[in-house]
């Protein structure tokens, strides 16, 4: 469902405009009931990191769940104020480390003791002390790959497009010196006017509607 919506949005922007009201999109023989909101969400712009953290906390406490905050650098306590406190990433890296270590040792064991046994100075075929360096390197290698690729996968990256980039202020300044908070229109609590009023009460520099295209 989600994927279909995305396909429609990107490949045929005009189709959405035309078919918006019936909320049924037909494209290339596919038919999908698309819960399209009139826009992606409401975006509030701040100039100070404190204001963003305070705003994020307030919005989270009001019970909004589809909320995200954006900053040009990691701001302490920001993700926590949105209720994001735990990540599966460390577990993934641990699994990677085990896979790498066990895999590295097994490779050496299989090659040196099973597939191609070599008698080197009468040492045992499974001469484990000599296998430690490569086991260590493989542990680090696979764990590091899991750390970076896992981070990207959990973050849903690479992502070719995001509706937020349709707001010029976000596209131009979000990675430089501005701080943004978005409440998505598909949040169960979202209400055209009440949500806007809530954002206004947080004293942002500006509020934007994030268009789909």
């Amino acid at each position: 469902m989600h994927r279909l919506r995305r396909t429609v949005r990107q490949s045929r922007p005009d189709a959405i405009q035309e078919n918006f009201n019936p909320s049924i999109v037909r494209i290339q023989g596919f038919q999908a009931v698309v819960p399209l909101q009139p826009y992606f969400g409401l975006l509030a712009e701040f100039t100070e990191p404190e204001d963003l953290v305070a705003a994020a906390r307030t919005v989270h406490e009001q019970g909004y769940v589809r909320v995200e905050a954006y900053s040009p650098y990691p701001v302490e306590g920001l993700s926590e104020s949105l209720g994001f406190t735990r990540s599966r990433l460390p577990l993934l890296v641990l699994i990677g480390a085990f896979l790498g270590g066990i895999g590295g040792y097994c490779l050496q064991y299989w090659v040196a003791a099973v597939e191609y046994p070599l008698n080197i100075g009468g040492r045992p075929l499974n001469s484990w002390p000599a296998f430690i360096p490569i086991t260590f390197e493989c542990t680090i290698l696979v764990a590091a790959l899991f750390a970076v690729l896992g981070m990207l996968a959990l973050n849903g990256l690479p992502q070719p497009h995001h509706p937020l980039f349709n707001v010029p202020e976000f596209a131009n300044y979000a990675s430089t010196d501005r701080f943004f908070l978005v409440i998505r229109a598909d949040d169960p609590q979202f209400h055209e006017t009440r949500t806007r009023e809530l954002l206004e009460s947080l004293k942002p520099m500006a509020i934007y509607e994030v268009p789909w295209v």
Binding site: E68, A144, N155
Partner: peptide, 20 residues
């Protein structure tokens, strides 16, 4: 890679950086 600077992304990014 379509980086937006979202708080959740930064959070995982910092974990990944520390672990790396």
């Amino acid at each position: 890679l379509g980086w937006t600077g979202s708080a959740r992304h930064w959070s995982r990014y910092e974990i990944a950086y520390g672990l790396l």
